[in-house]
Nucleic acid binder design. Structure first.
Length: 517
RNA sequence: GCCGCUAUCGUCUAACGGUUAGGACACGGGGUUCUCAAUCCUGUAAUCAGAGUUCGAUUCUCUGUAGCGGUGCCA
């Protein structure tokens, strides 16, 4: 429990938060929530990068907290020591910060943040496990992994569901004593009632009922002494005073088990809200095999954080209005769990790309230029030094391309001919070049003369080109296109006279010469 | 196998039990334009199936089907 002075208390909160509306009657329509301070958490395990699905869960928690003036807490679930790494933790934090999902409590937010790392709270968990053991609500299980695997396999091949048979639940005290004396390794299992049913009252799904008979005596502590997720999540949520557990639907099936842990520990339940999963194109849970799922890769691919946030918010939730583009502030204002819906959503980034384009177009010149710079540097088009000395010129180019970009990463390719000396013609451009083979010589001749005589000032060049080309009997469609491919090597780009001006006299003349005028 | 969740255009979604089932993205057509983009107009496109309740069902109930999730000494 975090104290007012920021220090951390190590024991289970003796007086946990109000559980909210009566689970019997509380459903998503009647839940007017939140008379208590809302406290929610995002609890990633540092076993990889932050992926799109995790980010969406974090976002919903964040929006719900901010909307209700509550607290958003970050906790690192690192009890899987095999797979947890500091690198992935760092990457997850970086991704959350990039998205703008800043947490109120968690790593880096207080002098002692050990409360937010589960591996640093082992004594707390052990204390609770001891007390469950002492009260007979849990028992030691001496079955080995191999034995259990064998039984599970047998059950599978017999096409029946595997359920722990309770072998060790029926051990006599003498038998237990003997095994303890023999120093046999053991796990700890929670006793779960064999009859009755458990009801999960969910803010998104209403009441979900499960017969206790279908539940196992779940393991809450491994043989090596490390407690299991389902157990620590309950203890931690209670200690942190979490009022609303908002997480992916993949946790729904675990919730009845967790409810039994809450009950065994004597802790009131928080509100649950299980949000729909994000799916790949094949409708299974989004994962690496569906392509890019790392949040930070979207940053590297030229998406703005507000675009990712905006798109993610629209997956599984919808605003009352028919708008699609929102800032984080607007989302905070209008977000509610009531409008979260139940079915999974396929991730398809064409809409995110659209949103990104809208956001890019609405950016201010200097901000946009600053965000584009890393992409120009990475492409090699611009050196570190030029990024400063040629800043105004670069900004000008960025502005010319602003309305064409869907992602920042497209800028270098779109603009290469402004920076490089050499250009190559695209296939499309070659077609234009060939198509106008009869006139192109004359076009370039006139153009050369104009640039030599008047330079590349946009207004002056435009005026002379229009007059002189006309005088030479050339149609605008023809000379415009020929000039464009000659100067840029492509058929697409900004306005022709903007292009000439930005290219400058030298590049223009060199390219005219190269084209053989 | 068992348990649970879910089901509206290709995708994201909206719709007090009464709407020509709406919007957005994507896609097609057109206007504008020196190209591309942007923008404007416009078109194609959906209630999983079957019963039941009801004057009336996308909406409520049941059954089926399908998909997904869980069923770990993972989280």
């Amino acid at each position: 429990m975090v104290q007012k002075d920021g220090s951390v208390l190590w024991t289970l909160n003796p007086k946990p938060p109000d559980p909210g509306p009566n689970p019997k009657t509380g459903n998503k329509k009647t839940n007017k929530a939140v008379d208590k301070m809302v406290r929610v958490r995002f609890a990633p395990s540092p076993t990889g990068y932050l992926h799109i699905g995790g980010a969406r869960t974090a976002l919903f928690n964040y929006l719900f907290a901010r909307h209700n003036n509550g607290k958003f807490i970050l906790r690192i679930e690192d009890t899987d020591q095999e797979r947890s790494t500091k690198e992935s933790e760092a990457e997850i934090l970086e991704a959350l910060k990039w998205l703008g999902l800043d947490w109120d409590e968690g790593p880096g937010k207080s002098a002692d943040d050990s409360m937010y790392y589960q591996t640093k709270r082992l004594p707390v968990y052990h204390k609770h496990i001891e007390s469950l053991l002492a009260s007979g609500k849990a028992y030691k299980c001496f079955c080995t992994k191999d034995e259990l695997d064998a039984k599970r396999k047998a059950a599978e091949s017999a096409k029946t569901g595997f359920k722990y048979d309770g072998t060790c639940a029926h051990l006599t005290p003498e038998q237990v004593k003997a095994k303890e004396d023999a120093k046999l390794p053991y796990t700890v299992r929670l006793k779960i009632p064999k009859d009755g049913e458990t009801v999960v009252s969910d803010l998104v799904r209403g009441e979900v009922k499960v017969a206790n008979a279908t539940l196992d005596d779940i393991i809450i502590m491994r043989a090596d002494g490390m407690p299991i997720y389902n157990f620590v999540v309950v203890v931690d949520d209670a200690d942190m005073g979490i009022t609303h557990v908002i997480r992916g639907e993949d946790h729904l099936s675990n919730t009845p088990k967790q409810i039994h842990i809450y009950n065994a520990l004597g802790i009131p339940l928080p509100q649950f809200a299980h949000i729909p999963l994000i799916l790949g194109a094949d409708k299974s849970k989004l994962s690496k095999r569906h392509g890019e799922v790392s949040v930070l890769r979207y940053r590297d691919n030229g998406y703005l954080p507000q675009s990712v946030v905006n798109y993610l918010a629209l997956l599984g939730w919808s605003p009352e209005s028919e708008d699609t583009v929102f800032t984080m502030e607007q989302l905070i204002k209008i977000f509610s769990l009531e409008r979260v819906h139940k079915s999974g959503a396929v991730f398809d980034n064409s809409k995110m790309m659209y949103i990104n384009g809208v956001n890019i177009r609405s950016m201010q010149a200097d901000e946009l230029t600053g965000m584009c710079m890393p992409f120009l540097l990475k492409s090699g088009l611009v050196t570190e030094e030029q990024s400063k000395s040629d800043y105004e010129k670069i900004k000008h180019i960025v502005l010319l391309q602003q309305e064409k970009m869907k992602t920042l990463a497209e800028l270098p390719e779109l603009s290469a001919y402004f920076f490089r000396d050499e250009i190559t013609m695209t296939d499309e451009a070659k077609k234009v070049w060939e198509k106008n083979s009869a006139e192109r010589g004359r076009v370039l001749e006139v153009l050369k003369k104009i640039i030599e005589e008047t330079g590349t000032d946009k207004a002056k060049v435009e005026e002379r080109i229009r007059i002189d080309m006309e005088a030479a009997g050339l149609k605008s469609k023809v000379f415009m296109h020929v000039i464009r491919v000659t100067l840029s090597g492509t058929t697409m780009g900004p306005g022709l006279f903007d292009m000439i001006e930005t290219l400058g006299r030298e590049k223009c003349l060199a390219r005219i010469a190269k084209a053989g005028a």
